[in-house]
Amino acid sequence: MPKIALITGGNRGLGRATALALIDAGVEVIYTYRGDPGEKIDAVALPLTVGDLGSYDAFAGSLRQVLADRFGRTDFDFLVNNAGVGAAGSIAETSVEAFDEMLNVHWRGMFFLTQKLLPLIADGGRIVNLSTGLTRFTGEGVYAAYAAMKGAVEVFTKYLAKELGPRGITANVVAPGPAGTEFGGGALRDNEQVRAHIGSVTALGRVARPEEIAAAVATMLGDGAGWITGQRVEASGGMLL
Rank of each mutant, 00 (worst) to 15 (best):
V207Q: 00
A17D: 06
G184P: 08
A147P: 13
R136L: 13
T132A: 08
A196S: 15
A60F: 01
T202I: 04
G9A: 01
L160P: 01
G51C: 01
A58Y: 01
A152S: 13
S62Y: 00
Q193W: 13
F111N: 07
T94F: 14
N82L: 09
T138Y: 15
D190G: 00
I23C: 01
H197P: 05
G72P: 03
G205K: 04
V174H: 02
A147K: 11
V233T: 12
I23T: 02
I169E: 06
M149F: 07
A98N: 15
D223E: 15
L221R: 03
H197G: 12
Q115I: 07
R16Q: 09
Q231R: 14
F78A: 01
L46P: 04
V96Y: 15
A88F: 15
A5K: 06
G180W: 00
L79S: 11
Y146I: 07
V217D: 00
R167D: 08
L241P: 11
G61Q: 04
D223M: 11
A175E: 07
A122I: 01
L204R: 12
N11Y: 00
R209C: 11
V128H: 01
I23D: 06
D77K: 03
F111G: 04
T132V: 03
A218P: 08
G238M: 02
G177A: 05
L130D: 03
